[in-house]
Design a protein around this nucleic acid. Structure first.
Lengths: 268, 268
DNA sequence: CGCGCTGTTGAGCTTTCTCAAGTTACGTGG
DNA sequence: CCACGTAACTTGAGAAAGCTCAACAGCGCG
């Protein structure tokens, strides 16, 4: 790794340098150029536009916008949300540094959701037509791109599993464990971090109300699994949370009654 | 279109011809070779393996199987289901002729879900590494492949919206409308078709119990929106169903009370 | 002809939502 | 610097949607 930044370097260090460069980005092992040699990474760098700053609550793109670019998150956090026909919004994901935004737009040449910055963030603009040109010259890049799209599919299907099969407590535990492991992969603490999204966003994402999220936070706190202060969270018993996220029968037993699991469907 | 089969040709006509051929397939405008010229379609045909028959309830692949091929459904129906760690299954989609199976496996070189035939079906085997080789020679094919993967992402996110935001009635209406439009796109009736999946499968997919599905069917029937006989369904008021699927406030009003919509979150 | 599988219907119960009141933090203007 | 207003969150009590359990009906199959 010849990156000038350590994995945990403060994002602030990057702010003055707006020219996006994969080679100089601490995230290139998580991001699109993963596994590329120096020469190929340079070619990728040549098509990548200037970094783009997005302020908190600003839209990176909106549903219906024409599709030009994919965006790699350089630092910061985003949410993507679909607006259904009756005006309800459904948050389909929270994205963090090193993740790619905009892949849903390839199918129809316009975006199918809104992407909103949860905090001041910066993205690399990746012109998709130029990227496709590169693919024919760099098979490794193409293959990795396919993996990323496929990963997105898998991720979405896991959320479907969460929304279709899990109880509130399990959903929330799974959410915490997911965040935890993603921060870990980025070199941050897996037990101490802050929510970049509001309780409302969390509830929306998990298919629960804001009140339920609040109650779950309290309940997890009382049980000693987490400590919360506003948006600051500390995970005190990650093992327990993982157990519950996995559907922990044991966890439900311990709770009091000996009921099966799952909000619906279920049944052997 | 130089296909020897009309769009509505009975699938039975294809059974004796096990050699898969895009050029000779009535679905090539819906499937991977969409938009390809004859020469390119021939090249695609050369890498596509023999057709593979899958009997009802047989697995096309299982979670954990190594990833070798994508599969295009020639005729028949499939379901894909994830098994969560506590043994619960969640059906993540129902696939029909012309749709591609297995894209979730690209990310990790093994399948992340089970694919099960809902009836006797046939698929074309598409060796993925050979397909990737073709991509560098046929940019149109590559581009279309990206659209298909992107479509899959969009589809999954719509299901997330369904599971996260919709009431039982709305979910079920959306499900019926979705099936209807997919049959329409394939040249079949949009109002008369049969469920290839059990009530249990429908319930699992929609995050509801089998009893709820049964009640919804009855309720829709009583209201005169559909007629049902076992797995045969006739849609009598597609407009109404679409209205409800879209979150129809009007529909909810008419129902009796004047409540807002959405099972959770919501609120302006 | 009876068994098993799938689906239907009913009654009561659990989970989570809804509504409402109250708290805390924070930015704005006096 | 403080009062105020707003936004975000918390907590409680009651309501409702949909689940669980249970009984039963229809159909296919051995």
């Amino acid at each position: 790794m010849n990156t000038p930044f350590s994995r945990v370097a403060s994002p602030l260090l990057n702010i003055p340098v707006l020219k996006a460069s994969c080679a100089g980005c601490s995230l290139h092992q998580l991001c699109l150029p993963m596994g590329l040699g120096n020469a190929d990474m340079d070619r990728l760098d040549q098509i990548i536009g200037r970094g783009q700053r997005i302020q908190r609550d600003q839209h990176l793109y909106r549903m219906g916008d024409p599709f030009k670019n994919l965006y790699a998150i350089r630092f910061g956090h985003f949410k993507t949300c679909h607006i259904s026909n009756n005006g309800e919004e459904q948050i389909t994901g929270f994205q963090m540094a090193g993740e790619l935004l905009g892949m849903d737009a390839i199918s129809s040449d316009h975006h199918h959701c809104d992407a909103v910055a949860l905090e001041d963030s910066e993205v690399c603009e990746i012109p998709f037509t130029r990227l496709e040109e590169l693919f024919s010259h760099i098979p490794t890049l193409l293959h990795h791109f396919h993996r990323i799209m496929s990963q997105e599919i898998t991720r979405d299907q896991n959320v479907m599993l969460l929304l279709g099969n899990m109880r509130a407590e399990q959903r929330f535990a799974a959410f915490l464990v997911n965040l935890s492991s993603r921060y870990l992969a980025r070199g941050y603490s897996s037990t101490n971090f802050q929510f970049r999204m509001s309780r409302e966003d969390i509830g929306n994402y998990l298919g629960l109300t804001i009140e339920s999220i609040s109650r779950l936070l309290s309940s997890f706190r009382v049980k000693g699994w987490i400590a919360v202060d506003k948006r600051e969270i500390q995970i005190l018993d990650l093992t327990k949370l993982k157990e519950i996220a996995l559907g922990g029968e044991a966890a439900l037993m311990a709770k009091k009654t000996g009921k099966p699991a799952g909000p619906a469907t279920a049944k052997t």
